[in-house]
């Protein structure tokens, strides 16, 4: 049984590369936020040691260690099971605005360190009937209020939080994949092999809120980026969309935003005939869709070539 762990050890990279990746993680994983080093009026913070970080365009620069913001790491498992107090998150996806730009997907892949084959946010080309026009349908995890995946989990590894988010504890998951069979929305993915996650410290602390570091033999999926929500920031897909397709907000406030507009959730759903996908299943998703009516863009099949899976 311990072979998996031994295996993980066996495959560790040589020290130099690991060390570098670790630094890269500070930039890519934790993000260098615009933190300031005060020279004159701080007194407390001394100019610290210089560390190397990998920039988003793949270059190596030296910055002061104190500039790196470590505050955005996910909370520990116990806290992550509770949810953010007083919130009930909701997402609205306006299908009439989607033109398959895939920025949402790219941002999601990047921030969760996902390889090409493993997409938490999928964009489907949908056609309801042969005579109707096709449309693009982005689909994250729908974070159902009556989640069939959580029902079947034998070890409480996946759970429904008070704020409506369904998360997975990858330190608990036994890899039975029952949740994948139970999910009618194909939202769940499995780490069939040792995850390919450059820039992640695999020995680092794990949080269900960041789903990082990803672990072999466990199930994972879209998590609504609770680490961002805790900072009062929108999930990555929402802020990355150039067309304002994704609205996100708190159901209790009845206010949602796509980054540009801030609107009343109930009003938007009422005005634009919002619906939930496969409502008949009774799963009560937290994600609503606005029909692909009065489209902003004509449908164009610009789907990328089918990705090839890298041989591991």
């Amino acid at each position: 049984m311990s072979d998996i762990h031994e295996d993980l050890k066996d495959h560790k990279e040589e020290p130099n590369r690991r060390n570098f990746l670790k630094l890269g993680a500070l930039a890519a994983g934790l993000a260098v936020t615009g933190a300031g080093l005060q020279k004159v009026f701080s007194g407390s913070e001394k100019p610290g040691e210089k560390v190397k970080v990998l920039t988003t365009d793949g270059q190596l620069v030296e910055v002061d260690k104190n500039h790196l913001d470590h505050s955005c790491c996910g909370v520990p498992s116990k806290e992550a099971r509770q949810g953010i107090p007083g919130k009930k998150f909701v997402m609205v996806i306006d299908l009439s605005r989607c033109r398959n730009a895939r920025k949402c997907q790219k941002a999601c892949q990047k921030h969760h360190h996902l390889p090409e084959e493993d997409k938490w946010l999928k964009v489907f080309k949908m056609q309801d009937a042969p005579s109707t026009s096709p449309y693009w349908m982005p689909k994250p995890c729908l974070h159902c209020d009556k989640p069939p995946c959580v029902k079947v989990c034998p070890v409480d590894a996946t759970f429904k939080r008070s704020d409506g988010i369904v998360l997975i504890d990858n330190e608990r998951c036994i890899g039975c994949r029952f949740c994948m069979a139970a999910c009618p929305y194909s939202s769940r993915a499995f780490n069939w092999h040792k995850p390919d996650q450059p820039g992640v410290d695999e020995a680092g602390a794990y949080s269900p809120e960041t789903s990082v570091p990803r672990k072999i033999g466990t199930v994972e999926k879209c998590d609504f980026c609770p680490d961002m929500l805790r900072q009062g920031k929108l999930p990555h897909c929402v802020s990355a969309c150039p067309n304002g397709v994704f609205y996100f907000g708190d159901m209790n406030e009845d206010i949602i935003t796509n980054g540009d507009e801030t609107v009343k959730f109930s009003q938007l759903i009422k005005d634009k005939a919002g619906y939930r996908y496969l409502e008949g299943l009774g799963t009560e998703p937290s994600v609503y869709y606005l029909p692909a009516a009065n489209r902003q863009f004509p449908f164009k099949d610009n789907a990328e070539e089918k990705p090839e899976v890298k041989k591991s």
Binding site: V32, G36, K39
Partner: peptide
Amino acid sequence: GLLATLVTDE
């Protein structure tokens, strides 16, 4: 004079 040195985020 110099107030701070900032590093930009992503």
